[in-house]
Structures are given as structure tokens and as C-alpha cells.
Amino acid sequence: MTGATGTIGRHIVSSLDEAGRRVRALVRDPAGAALPEGVEVVRGDLSSPGTLEAALRDVESVYLMWPGIAVDPRVVEVIARHAERVVYLSTDVADLADGEPATSYHQEIERLIRKSGLSWTFLRAIDFATNTLGWADQVRQGVVRWPYGQASRSLIHERDIADVAVRVLTSPGHDGARYVITGPESITHAEQVRIIGEAVGRQVRWEDLPVEVARRQLTAAWGNAAFVDARLRAWGSFVESPERVTDTVERVLGKPARTFRSWTEEHADDFR
């Protein structure tokens, strides 16, 4: 699997290992991976497809997390030569018609996978609760300044993504599925900040940041003006139309998705 040392990947690796499944983890630095003892750790890099051949030998299923680098079709080609199926962590993207240009690397990879001959499942996670860790410094100061305080988001706990991935990797009936996975409720930015404050035992105030100020600050921080504009448009749309909530996690796992409050309680120390 790829992304084994990441926020989601570590949960997937641990769950598969605890269930007695053989796991091979592709990492750039095996010495620093710090994965469970029973996990086979191999060196490789998605930016260098030639390094994947040995890692994929005798592999049946692949969990693929793309790190945001330029898409190289050879990665999917190598996977298709060795594995039978792939579970790809995508995002909430629209399906492409034949010939329609991709607007994101997720769409590019989904299209490559669909044409590869592999059995596949796409996990389209809308957005992660872990992204609110970007507010941690402001939380410590007692006020979060961000645009669109009334934008309602359906953030998902990383462990729910991992649990769905494990279920899909280890059970039949998911081939060709496009699972849009979200948290169980849609909560405004301002309410998220209040809940974080309660988890850390501190009153935290929300302050709406003017959109143009946010655009300048985020472009300077993220270095991608087009991405910033896309994020601002999306957040603005969630003021009038809350981000959608799906029951996919409950349908796949047989239990409700974890709440944002439960996530903040688990991560309270990260905000202190």
C-alpha cells in the first residue's frame, strides 16, 4: 500500500496487521517508517515508477493515495501488471464523460484506473477533519480568523476513511463503487471552532476574515492562486448550501460515522 506513514495510512496498516493480513508498505524512507513489526516495508516512490516493480510482486490489492505530484500514467500501468484491484483515495469529484478534460489530478488518476483493466473502488472523501489543525496556532491565541464562518462542512474523521478502506480491501462486493464518504453532520466553520475550544477547555472566538484578505494570505501561504480561488468559492457556496452529508460510512461499516466532536476530543492535545 501507498501512503502507509500518513494520517490515514497508518490506521489502515495497523488494522490490516491486527487482522492478520499480510501488508507490504511502500515508503520513501524505510528506516523512518516506524510501522508495526509484522509489516513488510519496501523502498519506493510514486514519482519514480521504476521503483514500484519489486514492491508490487505477488500483490493482490493496492491501496493508492496520490501525494499531489504530477500524474504519471506509468504508475497505474505498473500496478495493473501486478495487482488485481486498486482502492483509490480520491475526493468528491464528478465522473468524466469520454473526451472531457480532467480538472484535477484525482480525475486524471480515476480515468487511468478505469481504463487499466483493474478492478477498482474509489473512496471519494469530501474533506478531512484533520485540516482544521491548520487553525491550531490561532486556537492557542483564542481567536480564529478565517473566511466564511457560516460555511457548513461535513468533515470526516480519518479513522472512518481508514475503516472503510480496510473493509473494501478485505471483503467482496465493492468493485466499481464510487463511495462518497463524509462525516455524519454538516457544521459551520464557526461552530467547529467553538467545539474545538470546548475540547481544549478554552473559549475560542471566531472572527470572519474578509475574502480578499484571505485570498492574499492563503495565496502567500499555499503558493497556488487557482487552488485558493477554488477553495474560497467552495466555502462561499457552503454558506447557502451546506456541504452534503452521506450515509456511506454507516452503510459500508454498519455503524455511524464518527462525529466532529469525537475527533476534537481525540486531537485536543494538538490544539493546546
Rank of each mutant, 00 (worst) to 15 (best):
V87E: 05
Y88K: 03
A94F: 01
E100T: 07
E100Y: 08
T103S: 08
Y105H: 12
Q107D: 02
I109T: 06
R114Q: 10
R114S: 03
K115Y: 11
K115N: 15
K115V: 13
S119E: 09
F122G: 00
A125G: 10
F128A: 04
N131S: 09
T132Q: 09
T132G: 11
T132F: 11
L133Y: 04
L133F: 07
L133T: 02
W135L: 07
W135I: 05
D137R: 03
Q141W: 04
Q141N: 03
G142Q: 10
W146I: 07
P147W: 10
Q150W: 14
S152T: 12
R159S: 10
R159P: 09
D163T: 04
D163L: 01
V164M: 04
V168F: 05
T170I: 10
T170R: 10
S171Q: 08
G173H: 02
G173C: 02
H174K: 02
A177S: 08
V180I: 09
V180S: 04
T182W: 04
P184Y: 11
S186P: 06
H189C: 15
Q192I: 09
V193D: 08
I195M: 10
E198M: 03
V200T: 05
G201H: 14
G201D: 12
R202G: 00
Q203N: 09
W206I: 05
V211T: 12
E212A: 13
V213P: 08
V213N: 12
A214C: 14
R215I: 11
R215Y: 13
R216D: 13
